[in-house]
C-alpha cells in the first residue's frame, strides 16, 4: 500500500511515516509542501493521501480537489489542527474520506487508514485473515478457526483496533479515545479499557484463539502476532 503524507512539520511527518512504515505492507512518501505533493502525485499512484490543511504554500484542500478531479480511487484523510466545523465540512464536501484532528494517536491514524483501505479496496471481499482470526469488516463478523464468536460492538472495535496496530504498543489512552470518541474525556477513568480488554481476551481464548494480547505494564497493550 502506497501512502503520501503531506505535512509541513518535518519532525511530525517523520514520526508519522516512521510509525506507518512499521507495518511492512505500507510504503509512505512524505511531502512538506503543496508543490512537492503535486509533483509526487503526478509521478506516482498512491492508494491513500494523508493531507494537512494548513501548508506553507497553500491549502491542502486544493491538493484534495486535484486528486479527486483525476478520478482517483485513492482514499483521502485530512489531518488538521483546525477543528472548526467549516474545515471539516468543506474537506468532506470536496471528497475527503475521513478527518482527523491534530494532535492524534498514531495508532488511531493507522486504524483509520486501514479501515478506509478496507472500505475502498476490497469491494465485495471484506474478509481479513490473520492466523486463526478472520474478520469480515462488512458484516462485522469475527471467526476463530472458522467458528463465529459473539462480540459486542465495542469489543469488535477494540479487536479491529488492536489488529490494525498489531505488534505495536498501543497506549490505553489511545484505546479509550478510539472506543468512546473524540468528545469523551476518558482520561479520568481508564478502567473501562482494562475491562473491555479482559472481556475480549476471555472470549477469544474460550474460542480457542492464542492469547495474542500482551499487557504492557502501566502503558497499554500490544497485539503480538508473528
Amino acid at each position: 500500500m502506497k501512502i503520501l503524507l503531506v505535512e509541513d512539520e518535518l519532525e511530525l511527518a517523520q514520526s508519522i511515516s516512521d510509525y506507518l512504515k512499521k507495518n511492512e505492507k505500507i510504503n509512505c512518501d512524505v511531502a512538506h509542501d503543496l508543490y512537492k505533493a503535486s509533483e509526487l502525485t503526478e509521478l506516482y499512484d498512491y492508494d491513500c493521501f494523508i493531507v494537512d490543511v494548513g501548508l506553507p504554500d497553500g491549502s491542502g484542500l486544493e491538493l484534495i480537489k486535484t486528486i479527486k478531479s483525476k478520478d482517483s480511487k485513492a482514499g483521502v484523510i485530512i489531518i488538521s489542527a483546525r477543528d472548526s466545523i467549516d474545515d471539516r465540512i468543506s474537506g468532506l464536501n470536496i471528497g475527503a474520506d475521513d478527518y482527523l484532528i491534530k494532535p492524534f494517536h498514531f495508532s488511531e491514524l493507522n486504524a483509520r487508514i486501514h479501515s478506509l483501505m478496507r472500505r475502498l479496496k476490497f469491494e465485495g471481499n471484506t474478509i481479513f485473515q490473520l492466523n486463526e482470526i478472520s474478520i469480515d469488516s462488512q458484516s462485522r463478523e469475527v471467526k476463530i478457526k472458522n467458528e463465529a464468536i459473539d462480540l459486542t460492538k465495542s469489543e469488535y472495535d477494540l479487536l479491529f483496533y488492536l489488529l490494525t496496530n498489531k505488534n505495536q504498543v498501543i497506549s490505553k489512552t489511545s484505546i479509550a479515545e478510539h472506543l468512546v470518541g473524540e468528545f469523551v474525556d476518558a482520561l479520568g477513568s481508564l478502567d473501562f479499557v482494562y475491562l473491555h480488554i479482559k472481556n475480549l481476551r476471555k472470549k477469544l481464548i474460550q474460542a480457542g484463539c492464542t492469547d495474542y494480547i500482551k499487557t504492557v505494564y502501566g502503558v497499554g497493550y500490544k497485539f503480538y502476532i508473528e
Binding site: E9, E11, L12, S15, I16, D18, Y19, K22, A81, K102, P103, H105, F106, S107, Q168, V169, S171, V219
Partner: peptide, 17 residues
C-alpha cells in the same frame, strides 16, 4: 503550541514502540 506538542506526542509514541 499545538505543533510542538504534536511533535512531542509523536516522538513519545514512537519511543513507546
Amino acid at each position: 503550541i499545538q505543533t510542538p506538542l504534536a511533535i512531542i506526542r509523536g516522538k513519545a509514541e514512537m519511543l513507546l514502540q
